[in-house]
């Protein structure tokens, strides 16, 4: 594979690992200086979500809501109704699970300009265990009409996402995680809401990924390349509105699809891609993710290993697809 088929946005080699929630907190402070209308609400997790950084600099625009996620979402709605740009943060399980109906009724149905930026999504939460590992949040948020759902893949994309959504009018959910994410993008990376990015062209299999799994997908593509298999890798950071055109094009260029996410394979990225392809370009696919199960305690990154969310699991899925496709062809012949 020639170098020209690899996106210029990718770093040559991963050297940095960054807490993307810290990137969120720092970006929020910078935006706070530019936008006096930003207010930030948090439900007793300010140190973990890093909204405390905003709170230190802008105490009058920072609202600790206590352990009251439903009230936080409703209050954020009230701020938005008064022309503010509220950012509401807590862990993903509480933002999307505990407060779901408040998000639906008070924020998303009336299309209010509330930014829900949740951290600690997925199994990389680690030791806190299954109760705190949101594996359903993408599904819960993308099922809502009017909602925009974004899952950044690294710190660079996180900063671009947070800066972009400030100027995007309407309800938005951003999914962040607890663990350090490898930085895969150069500073020149461009994020656009609704645009999936092809990070690598390929001929044999297409891997759609979100979040920390984009790095695993890239890793998988390198392993496959050594085996003579050319893999296309797409970062679908906007899960909603989903980029149908890019997805169909990428799938049709190979005829085999693997999805990769730190989320239940039901209703998340895998579900979203299956919906797009089922209606536009039926393609054999395998979904790598949490296979309809809850998580467990353990080291966050090791849990990716434990649950089969690593590059080699993507490689394995690609092999299975290619084998199936070749058998299918031989039957036809």
């Amino acid at each position: 594979m020639s170098r020209t088929q690899i996106s210029d946005f990718l770093v040559d080699e991963v050297t940095e690992h960054v807490y993307i929630r810290e990137t969120y907190g720092k970006t929020l402070v910078e935006l706070g200086r530019e936008y006096p209308n930003i207010v930030v609400l948090d439900a007793d997790l300010t140190v973990s979500t890093k909204t405390n950084l905003f709170g230190k600099e802008f105490p009058n625009r920072f609202f600790t809501m206590g352990v009251s996620e439903q009230d936080m979402m409703g209050t954020a709605a009230g701020f938005a109704l008064s022309g503010k740009i509220p950012f509401a943060s807590t862990f993903a399980i509480f933002a999307t699970g505990r407060a779901w109906e408040h998000v639906r009724q008070s924020i998303v149905f009336p299309k209010l300009n509330v930014k829900i930026v949740a951290t600690h999504a997925g199994v990389t939460v680690g030791e806190d265990g299954a109760t705190h590992q949101a594996l359903e949040d993408i599904a819960l948020m993308r099922v809502l009409p009017n909602m925009t759902v974004i899952v950044p893949a690294d710190a660079v994309e996180t900063e671009k996402v947070i800066r972009t959504i400030v100027n995007h009018k309407g309800p938005t959910y951003v999914r962040l995680a607890r663990a350090k994410f490898p930085t895969i993008f150069k500073k020149s990376y461009e994020f656009e809401i609704g645009k999936a990015r092809v990070l690598r062209e390929g001929k044999h299999v297409t891997i759609f990924a979100v979040g920390i799994m984009v790095c695993e997908a890239l890793e998988a593509s390198k392993i496959l390349e050594r085996e003579g298999i050319s893999a296309c890798v797409v970062n679908v950071s906007t899960v909603k509105p989903i980029d149908v055109e890019t997805i169909v094009k990428a799938a049709s260029s190979t005829g085999a699809v693997v999805t990769a996410e730190d989320h239940n394979i039901i209703g998340g990225l895998g579900g979203a891609i299956a919906e797009v392809l089922g209606e536009n370009y039926p393609t054999l696919m395998k979904r790598i993710g949490m296979n309809d199960r809850f998580g467990t305690s353990g080291d966050g990154l090791q849990l990716l290993e434990y649950f089969g969310l690593k590059a080699r699991n993507i490689v394995q899925a690609a092999h299975e697809l290619l084998e199936f496709n070749s058998q299918k062809k031989s039957v036809v012949l």
Binding site: D71, T75, A76, G78, G83, P86
Partner: peptide
């Protein structure tokens, strides 16, 4: 409703 009213009052 009262949560939304609180947000309006704070704003």
């Amino acid at each position: 409703g009262l949560s939304a009213a609180n947000g309006m009052a704070l704003a």
